[in-house]
């Protein structure tokens, strides 16, 4: 691995200062499960590695049913699925972080890092988009908020400007009658990269018989995660019958423009979009039937 300096600031402004000064010569380190491999294999160069795990705004999370979740960018996966209230309120996110790598990876890898890495196949991103998450950024120019749905701009690329970092993600409060799910298809049982991933969120109406609102997002079907807006709109006001969920799956296929690669041909991936959309919607509806914040 090439040589670099290491800094672990304990204050956000100090980190922003360091990062702005070093510019493109610096890289940020949270769980390190992508960055350390990239540095070691020469896929990324850095003279300075800034460890952000000692900054409270990044390393802490807060959840309250009334205000929702504020998830620091460096919080590791296990802290989400081992927290019963968070896993119950945001099951799609818990589904995703339970299957990112193995146990050892989940001890370190963060959702913020998974997002910044901006892989088209990242498991947590469709879950975040389906849950309506917002990314909070800070840099030399100040602070701004960007919906996660608009965060990725290409494979490995995102909206972060030079010197800017992801501080936290916020998820809106989960109301009674809401539910979500994330599923991916992989040829193995564990430890693999999604051939296709789908995250769905639904809010049932007062009667719990109809879908009042929905969001669907897909992974590994294009250069960035995709939102299936038309499919979600189709479901509004409808009962979650098998036919309606199937139709939503068919509509979701229309936003998929996958490539053919070693993980699967484009046609197969498009087929998977229909299947996984339907299944995650069904799981989300079932969870919504019982969820009470």
């Amino acid at each position: 691995m090439i040589e670099f300096e290491y800094a672990a600031p304990t204050d956000l402004d100090e980190a922003i200062g360091l990062f702005a000064q070093a510019g493109d010569r610096a890289t940020l380190l949270a769980g390190g499960t992508d960055i350390i491999v990239q540095l070691r294999e020469g896929l990324r160069r850095a003279d300075l590695v800034i460890d952000v795990k000692k900054i409270p705004e990044l390393s802490q999370f807060e959840y309250a049913p009334e205000t929702g979740l504020r998830l620091g960018a460096s919080v590791p996966c296990w802290q989400i699925y081992e927290n019963e209230s968070i896993a119950a309120a945001y099951p799609a996110l818990a589904d995703a972080v339970r299957i990112i790598g193995g146990w050892q990876i989940q001890s370190r890898a963060s959702v913020g890092g998974n997002l910044c890495n901006a892989s088209p196949a990242a498991d947590s991103i469709p879950a975040l988009i389906a849950l309506g998450a917002v990314a909070h950024l800070a840099g030399p120019g100040g602070r701004r908020a960007v919906p996660v749905a608009e965060f990725c701009t290409g494979p490995g690329k995102n909206v972060l400007q030079s010197g800017e970092l992801l501080v936290a993600l916020t998820l809106p409060p989960a109301h009674a009658g809401s539910g979500s799910a994330y599923q991916r298809f992989i040829p193995r049982n564990e430890m693999d990269i999604a051939v296709v991933g789908a995250g769905s969120w639904v809010q049932l109406d007062e009667s719990r018989q109809r879908i009042a609102a929905a969001r669907i997002a897909l992974a590994a079907v294009g250069p960035t995660p995709r939102q299936a807006v038309q499919a979600a709109e189709f479901l509004c006001g409808k009962e979650p019958t098998e036919e309606n969920l199937h139709e939503a799956g068919e509509l979701a296929k229309q936003v998929a423009t996958p490539i053919s690669d070693m993980r699967g041909p484009a046609e197969y991936r498009t087929h998977l979009v229909g299947v996984l959309t339907r299944r995650t919607l069904a799981a989300a509806v079932e969870r919504a039937g019982t969820f009470q914040p």
Binding site: Y6, A8, L29, I36, V37, D51, Q104, I105, S107, R108
Partner: peptide, 10 residues
Amino acid sequence: VNSCLVLAVE
């Protein structure tokens, strides 16, 4: 954790 993915300084 995988100790190959932890920097010793961490």
